[in-house]
Amino acid sequence: MRTPSWISQHLAALRALLVLTVLTGIAYPLVITGLAQAPGLRDKANGSVVEADGRPVGSLLIGQAFTDADGNPVPKYFQSRPSASGYSLDATSASNLGPESVQDTLGDPALKDSPDGDGGKQALLTQVCARSKAVGELEGVDGRRPYCTADGLGAVLRVFYTDGMSGKVTRAVSVNQACPATPFLAVYQGVAVECGKFGEDYGKGVLVPVRGDAPEQSAVPADAVTASASGIDPHISVEYARLQAKRVAAARNLPLDRVDDLIDEYTTGRALGFMGEPAVNVLDLNLALDRV
């Protein structure tokens, strides 16, 4: 008796399903897993997990915060670079903000005590300014940067002209400094500068970043104020590590030379000898300090 064609087709499909399931769902994963456990690959394949006192404390591949319960930096530890994702593995990401992100969204003063926040949002410029100010205060250096106010906001005006984009200045607003703040600049081209007000539309004004008198080269390096693309970069620059060395040495009662030597020891070179820059793995360095 001849098998109906539709049954033959279903049996062929079933055989193909079983063969492909064995090959791609069982054999292939087992082979790859076996290769990943080979010497030289095992640690990275397993997440490069680091243990201290018999318990896992992190991964050499994943950045983490070295802060207390209130989010303040722990003085005896080197700090990682900022993270747009809060070092979360569930939502690794960048902020997606670019160089044109200079004007903040002011929060609603009526919601300042709300657990959900006031609806305000910082532009990239203000984030950089605030981080640089905080790092400068923590490390005891000048954290000023160009286009930043003294209170750690983007130094940006919305300037209104008689002819739209040109002409005589009729109004100037420091849009990132919410009232009742005192504007970072008292007068702009003969017009008194106002503080920003929530809900007011300044879209017709021209955005004018003001450089200020900060030095051209800030004492706070770029990776101390900018997040990585993934949000979980485990490394910092050698420059940022050197900046933190004095604080860490003082907190641990160690000679500064000893801390500098550890920075040198845990500095990795450029990938393949030419890609990227030398960097320091923060977790590796902090664990080495704990062993001293």
Rank of each mutant, 00 (worst) to 15 (best):
241 A>W: 10
23 L>M: 03
32 I>H: 12
178 A>T: 04
190 G>A: 07
275 M>E: 15
77 Y>P: 10
109 P>Y: 01
186 A>C: 08
80 S>C: 02
150 A>M: 08
205 G>Y: 09
97 L>Q: 15
61 L>S: 10
119 G>S: 05
71 G>N: 07
19 V>H: 06
53 D>N: 10
182 T>G: 09
125 L>W: 01
81 R>I: 08
189 Q>H: 13
181 A>F: 02
89 L>F: 02
149 T>K: 00
100 E>A: 06
240 Y>S: 11
174 S>W: 03
106 L>M: 04
172 A>F: 08
97 L>V: 12
192 A>H: 09
78 F>Q: 04
131 R>I: 11
222 A>C: 09
210 V>M: 06
72 N>L: 11
121 K>L: 07
32 I>Y: 12
281 N>P: 05
155 A>M: 03
282 V>Q: 01
61 L>T: 09
81 R>G: 12
25 G>Y: 04
286 N>T: 07
225 V>N: 06
151 D>M: 00
109 P>N: 00
218 S>K: 00
63 G>R: 05
217 Q>D: 15
257 D>L: 05
212 G>Y: 07
127 Q>R: 12
157 L>M: 03
225 V>Y: 10
68 D>V: 06
186 A>K: 15
155 A>C: 01
86 G>C: 07
88 S>D: 15
49 V>W: 03
103 Q>R: 09
88 S>H: 09
111 L>E: 11
32 I>M: 13
110 A>D: 14
232 I>F: 00
116 D>Y: 11
256 L>A: 09
243 L>G: 10
242 R>L: 14
271 A>R: 03
204 K>P: 04
254 L>G: 05
288 A>Y: 08
235 H>N: 11
69 A>R: 07
247 R>N: 13
123 A>Y: 08
64 Q>H: 00
92 T>W: 06
39 P>R: 05
237 S>I: 10
229 A>M: 11
87 Y>G: 11
87 Y>N: 11
289 L>P: 07
13 A>Y: 14
51 E>D: 13
